[in-house]
Design a protein around this nucleic acid. Sequence first.
DNA 1: AAGTGTGAACAAGTTCACAGCC
DNA 2: GGCTGTGAACTTGTTCACACTT
Lengths: 230, 230
Amino acid sequence: MPLEIPEVVIDRLPVYYRLLARLSYEGRAVVSSQELGEELGVTPAQIRKDLSYFGRFGKQGRGYSVPRLTEELRVILGLDTRWSVVVVGIGRLGRAIASYPGFEDQGFDIVALYDADRKVIGTEVAGVVVRDSGHLEDDLRQRPADIAVVAVPSTIAQEIADRLVHGGVRAILNYAPTRVVVPAGVELRHINPVLFLQSMTYHLKRTANRNLRAPEPLPRRDPSAEARPA
Amino acid sequence: MPLEIPEVVIDRLPVYYRLLARLSYEGRAVVSSQELGEELGVTPAQIRKDLSYFGRFGKQGRGYSVPRLTEELRVILGLDTRWSVVVVGIGRLGRAIASYPGFEDQGFDIVALYDADRKVIGTEVAGVVVRDSGHLEDDLRQRPADIAVVAVPSTIAQEIADRLVHGGVRAILNYAPTRVVVPAGVELRHINPVLFLQSMTYHLKRTANRNLRAPEPLPRRDPSAEARPA
DNA sequence: AAGTGTGAACAAGTTCACAGCC
DNA sequence: GGCTGTGAACTTGTTCACACTT
């Protein structure tokens, strides 16, 4: 437990958490790493090893208590607190993000929206009035935010990121299709669907001959034949 | 070159391509792996090794020809062809996706939009009339599509994926916050911002003490009261 | 009997370091 | 001199397999 935990393990935890939260909701009492693995398309050993970095949550011969493990992961991931989020860039994408109920549901409070466009500033989106992004740093000093979602044009993404970091934001989820750089200690994730499409076309190009278009019977879940997870 | 190429390498290619396309546009003639690495925050050795899976594109003592390498990657990734994309689920997110110019710019043609809602069917979004998702399979048989973007509610994501695969779609980009399963040979990527937020909160929770905030003591409550237990 | 937790074996991925070429 | 291409060394991540617990 005191040893260094690989980042890949951290990245899988939310996936485990999501499944466990569902099982918990369904009233399931106990689950084995075997079954979790089948459901997620990963090996049971990986799940046990991943969890073992954080403690010994299972019972031999039985498995894991679903409510117990769900709660443990909730705490480990810091989801026992609500986090404040600001969204910068209220174009079509920013609007979709601000209106997505999944954030609030999962404990992320969208506390402010920012845009630079005078036509957008002052309008209400998902119950929040859009503020002038010129006030970003001042506002953040007044009312700090934990996380920022960036959905501005590529050209200004770095500038916005800099100002967010300067304003004390410690995690940035960047939807702009450009890499931004932040100081060590600030968490950063990029979401760029085009990069996904482009890695998929690499494979499409190479499987063009295998005719999957023929009207075959509808394939149903066969975990062993499953495509790789994202 | 004939040997098995790791998937991680494929996933990095679009990132290299994006940078090279920019350099190419800027008129840059030659670039070294050193410089590419600095720009992308990866080691030069990794770039050289990755590229070496596909051929010998560099010149010793010089570096890589920017236009040449850009073009090579374009072909390797299959971006020398246009690909047809359908978007299923024209809610706020689907609308943002359908309207995003970045797809068309990069050679992805959005050829059809689908929704199940009678109020949405028949309306025009980004110049395309939304069709009834009930016609999905019939339409696909008539006019095959290469790629589908799924932006439907979680509850029906698997069903839609099944029907897309049955209709001959060979790559799915899933925005629904649930894992879907597809047969081997069908490319699949998941985009779920909540999972990113949750892995970031893991780290935020652990760096709460390191004061990265601007040196103003303004927050509402006594900071010591906000310190989380270990 | 069933299933965890984990060191050890293995596999995958990254970086080194240098021969070879421009 | 500078920089690629690449085996070899190393590092990181995954899976095995089994002692141990319920």
